[in-house]
């Protein structure tokens, strides 16, 4: 049977699957809402991570029993795995700011070559608020931005300089899109990997930021 996947969904699956490869067995991971929640579906064999939910627990898992008090950070019904622990919001963010969360995966409206990220407001259009995002990008040991490479209008979301109000300054470590994987380093943004079927020319064409091409790709 052939399953047809809409192109946007396919992009999200490609991104989630690649992000999953960044995670190590035993990592404590916080996943943002939307695309990042797909990441656990693609964890390689033998890699188990502990999911932290900023509304107050570690050990987030699939829904097993109906409990209206148990939701994920997007307010959706959630479950907990054996060994989970609940705590208050103060402790939850102590874990986040205190470097006890190994990885955070979140979406972005814009990211730039300096490791800046903007994902909490579009002045005059959309002001949802930052929620826990500013604490997560500041405190998590590794910040992975998982997002589609371009806006709906086709513009690059990886810029020389973010134009929207920042969520964090110089905080991003890795950017994963359906086109490529970039790492933010002291030397600048490095294109580390092209997704399957993507050419270097295409990645260059769709990326506004200046980047170094990893020697592995040349």
């Amino acid at each position: 049977m052939v399953t047809l996947v809409p192109p946007q969904m396919a992009a999200k699956q490609i991104i989630a699957a690649r992000v999953a490869k960044e995670l190590k067995n035993g990592d404590v991971v916080n996943l943002g809402i939307g695309l990042p929640t797909m990441v656990p579906n693609y964890l390689p064999e033998g890699v188990n991570v502990i999911l932290q939910s900023e509304n107050g627990y570690v050990g987030l898992g699939p829904v097993t029993v109906e409990d209206p008090d148990l939701v994920n950070a997007g307010g959706q019904p959630a479950g907990v795995i054996p060994g989970a622990a609940f705590f208050d919001s103060g402790f939850s963010f102590e874990l986040i700011r205190g470097g006890h969360v190994d990885v955070t995966v979140l979406g972005g409206l814009e990211v730039d070559e300096h490791g800046n990220i903007a994902n909490w407001m579009v002045p005059g259009k959309m002001v949802p608020g930052m929620g826990g995002a500013m604490d997560l990008v500041t405190g998590a040991k590794k910040v992975i931005v998982a997002m589609e490479h371009c806006t709906k209008k086709g513009g690059s979301k990886i810029l020389e300089q973010c134009t929207l109000p920042l969520t964090g300054k110089g905080v991003v470590d890795v950017i994963v899109t359906e086109i490529a994987v970039f790492r933010v380093t002291k030397e600048g943004l490095v294109l580390e990997e092209l997704q399957e079927g993507v050419t270097l020319e295409e990645a260059k064409e769709k990326t506004e930021a200046t980047f170094i091409v990893s020697p592995n790709l040349v």
Binding site: S89, G90, R97, G129
Partner: peptide, 13 residues
């Protein structure tokens, strides 16, 4: 007044 969630928790604490 929009406040980062962790900061809101700590300000209340």
């Amino acid at each position: 007044e929009l406040v980062p969630q962790g900061t809101l928790a700590e300000r209340i604490r």
